[in-house]
């Protein structure tokens, strides 16, 4: 059942990315290009996503368990540390260079785009490098493969 719900959630998410045009790198760069031909579409999409997700996250935070009584892992909402800032800045450089983030990158690959595989291979290499980096730093695995904690 958990996997069936996850499949439906993924479908909604993927259809939303397609409909909003956020799988097209040109549309992402158009939002980020504030000194050029700026277009606000991404901000509209983020606002609509927030409007729908906010009540759900608020209810979930208060309840502490899902509607199927599955425990919702609590994230450390206030931990603002160097890995968070450094990692987000590095992601920002990659996102600004390409106009692609992980979800759309995977979707472009699945859609059969011949160039997307270069990006996704890069992402996979970066993910594995980050695992090594965090083990070197503090002897633990980033992203909590072991503890299954939420990452955001």
């Amino acid at each position: 059942m958990t996997a069936v719900i996850a499949l439906v959630a993924g479908l909604l998410f993927g259809l939303g990315l397609l409909l909003s045009g956020m799988t097209n790198p040109g549309n992402i760069i158009a939002f980020l290009d504030v000194t050029g031909a700026w277009r606000p579409s991404l901000a509209l999409t983020m606002t609509a996503a927030f409007a729908v997700a906010f009540p759900a996250f608020t209810v979930a935070r208060i309840r502490g368990v899902s509607l199927r009584n599955l425990l919702i892992p609590q994230s450390d909402r206030f931990r603002i540390d160097r890995p968070l800032l450094l990692g987000s800045a590095i992601f920002g450089v990659g996102w600004g260079l390409s106009g692609v983030c992980p979800g759309p990158g995977l979707m472009l690959l699945a859609g059969g785009d011949s160039r997307a595989y270069i990006f996704v291979l890069g992402v996979a290499a970066g993910v594995f490098a980050a695992g090594r980096f965090s083990r070197l730093r503090n002897g633990t695995v980033t992203g909590d493969v072991r503890t299954n904690r939420p990452t955001a």
């Binding site: 987000s88 450089v93 260079l97 390409s98 992980p102 990158g105 160039r115 290499a125 970066g126 980033t142």
Partner: peptide, 20 residues
Amino acid sequence: LGLAGVLVGFGTRVGSGCTS
């Protein structure tokens, strides 16, 4: 694009999240 992919993969894991 390949370089950007590495930065996106590395950055999102060190920073524990991406746009989603």
